[in-house]
Amino acid sequence: MGAVVVFCEVSDDGKAVRTSSLPALAAGAELAKHHGGGVVAVVVGNGVGAAAADAAKYAPKVLAFDGAGLAAPLAETWAPQLADAVKRAGATALVATATSTGKDVLPRAAALLGAGMASDVTGVLGAKELRRPAYAGNAVETVEVGGPVVVASVRQSAFPPAVAGAAGAVETVAVAAADALGAEHLGVHGTKSARPELGDAKVVVSGGRGMREGANFKILEELTDLLGGALGASRAAADAGMVPNDLQVGQTGKVVAPNLYIAVAISGAIQHLAGMKGSKVIVAINKDPEAPIFQVADYGLVATWEQAVPALIAEVKKLKA
């Protein structure tokens, strides 16, 4: 068996590997023990030299696919590079974090390789044996990935970030032309926030429909910032326009596993639980004592947010003083 290729995304400033890719490097290293080869980190884009150098801190070897035609994040042009990387490295596995980019590109690369793929992997049991959640987290599957190459997207919260330390060699592959098949990336409209990213945050404070309107999230933001955390929301709150959609936590939103998750005015639908059940400590604040969220909460407080959140802010301030 052979090497393990790990797809590393490049940070917005182009200088580093995204922190969301560090758990994939860790999972790749774990898988590499079973595959017998080493980790080969792969970066893709236009002018990715600095990011490749950063990736070399985490892997003995880096392949940098560089070319003007790869500037835009397009599955059409990026998936072939990942397939090419697997061939160049003689790899028997391909791994990436299950970010929105990873989920978009990896299955397409698997198709090009004729490889089987496991999504959202949370554990490595052997060279081809992996664990992953299904049924909105209500079942854990042990799967065997057949075929020539094992492709796996890994859940960010399930693996610790890889630690810098290696001094890998970078090989640059100049990509002269890449066929986007008529696809064009027209841009991303994001909500830039000074807070940590949901996926990385140690504390997440989420609000639900019971917050009633966007302006009421101010108080949750205050608590979030006091705890140095990230703000999240249920689908109902996001759909109602109280917060941007990218704050949605759940089966179809982001999966988070912080040390502390505080769910405020969220009922605890299975689709929401699927995104936060892995948190170390869960706190629920809800006025309905029967709300299902209390079944997964380590600490439940039956109260309205109007009463509880300002009081909690005051208590935390006292503790921090």
Partner: peptide
């Protein structure tokens, strides 16, 4: 290419408590 060998229930969370006050 992908075969599910077994399904298990996810690890249960230990039962939590209700607190009486903030």
């Amino acid at each position: 290419l992908l075969k599910v060998k077994t399904y298990e229930a996810p690890p249960a969370r230990k039962a939590g408590i209700k607190v009486a006050s903030v």
